[in-house]
């Protein structure tokens, strides 16, 4: 299989910060809004470079989304960010009416998403954001997998005209996507080709899927690994093409099964080419405090869990 050497260890939120800074350099209409978490969501780089284009809203996320919409309909590219729990669920109605239905050029940025937020616990570990955002018409949903891809995804979001949700995380995780790898919204990336099973992963789980594919290869099983950085619009063609070859699939994500990538894939397969599928993710439960790694292990999101799921799904063919 194709090797992706680990290039370092960085947080995806820092990738967002670098991407936003770059987007701000490319387009003077890019503005940023935050609700008292500028450093945490890594808008600090943008703030230092463009202090006049950084709008501190205070702890008032609903107002932040509305202001972002007003700026966007007036011609600005408005990035509004908080922890993903507060920039999506807390303000769902504001996003629905002022961003999605009004089709304003607002980029909802959700940091500290998923269970890998760690010690802060379930109030902050949102595992429902992808579902909420993907259900909204007009909304593009991005969930890049590492630092470098988050830079590229943020720049792509700024250049896309319309509502976007971009999800990223807090912990330092392996960097493995080459800096020069092309990024296109809605275009999945086949990281490694295989013939026995398709591993489709998003966000932090892409690295785990690659590690799983390595283990499977050692055991004589050829796995295809697909990086889904865009959950909506989903690259149906890439997934169906792979499944036509492997005849089974494992979906891997740091999100509830309900509403997540797994659900989107299952819907796609049922309507087009029903095949055995296994889910890696959170099965209708909240998270809890712990280190990111301990939580990944407890909730079954590690490479070894993907290996087991792959064997189960192959056996069901």
């Amino acid at each position: 299989m194709k090797e992706y050497p680990q290039l370092g260890s960085k947080d995806t939120r820092s990738g967002f910060g670098i991407g936003l800074l770059e987007a701000g350099k490319r387009n003077e209409n890019v503005v940023a809004l935050c609700a008292d978490l500028i450093g945490s969501v890594r808008m600090d780089l943008f703030q230092e470079a463009f202090p006049e284009r950084m709008i501190e809203c205070g702890i008032a996320e609903a107002n932040m989304i509305g202001i972002a919409a007003g700026l966007a309909l007036s011609g600005k590219v408005a990035f509004a960010s908080s922890f993903a729990a507060f920039s999506t669920g807390r303000v769902y109605d504001q996003i629905r009416q002022a961003v999605a239905y009004s089709n304003t050029n607002v980029k909802i940025a959700g940091s500290h998403a998923g269970i890998t937020l760690g010690e802060d616990g379930a109030t902050h570990q949102i595992l429902e954001d992808i579902g909420m955002m993907k259900m909204l018409p007009n909304m593009v949903v991005l969930n890049p997998c590492d630092h470098n891809q988050t830079i590229a995804a943020t720049i792509a979001a700024a250049e896309y005209n319309g509502p976007v949700y971009i999800r990223y995380g807090r912990p330092k995780v392996p960097v493995f996507i080459p800096e020069d790898m092309p990024f296109e919204i809605g275009k999945a990336i086949v990281l490694s080709e295989g013939t026995d099973v398709t591993l489709v992963a998003t966000g932090h789980l892409v690295w785990e899927a690659l590690q799983a594919a390595k283990i499977l290869e050692e055991q004589g099983i050829s796995a295809e690994v697909i990086d889904i950085h865009t959950i909506k619009p989903l690259d149906n063609e890439a997934i169906l093409k792979s499944v036509a070859k492997t005849n089974c699939i494992v979906g891997c994500e740091e999100h509830q099964f309900n509403g997540g990538l797994n659900e989107s894939i299952a819907q796609l397969l049922v309507r087009n080419n029903p095949k055995p599928m296994e889910f890696i993710g959170i099965d209708d439960s909240f998270g809890e405090s712990g280190t990111p790694d301990a939580l990944m292990e407890k909730y079954g999101l590690k490479a070894n869990n993907i290996v087991e799921a792959a064997k189960r799904v192959i056996a069901r063919k």
């Binding site: 709008i55 609903a62 107002n63 932040m64 989304i65 509305g66 202001i67 972002a68 919409a69 007003g70 700026l71 966007a72 309909l73 007036s74 011609g75 600005k76 408005a78 109605d93 504001q94 629905r96 009416q97 002022a98 239905y101 009004s102 304003t104």
Partner: peptide, 21 residues
């Protein structure tokens, strides 16, 4: 210029438009 109906949002939107000006 903007959808409304779910109440309480228009002031924020107006602020955004005012800041853009």
């Amino acid at each position: 210029r903007q959808a409304s109906g779910s109440l309480g949002q228009g002031l924020s939107v107006g602020i955004g438009a005012a800041l853009a000006k």
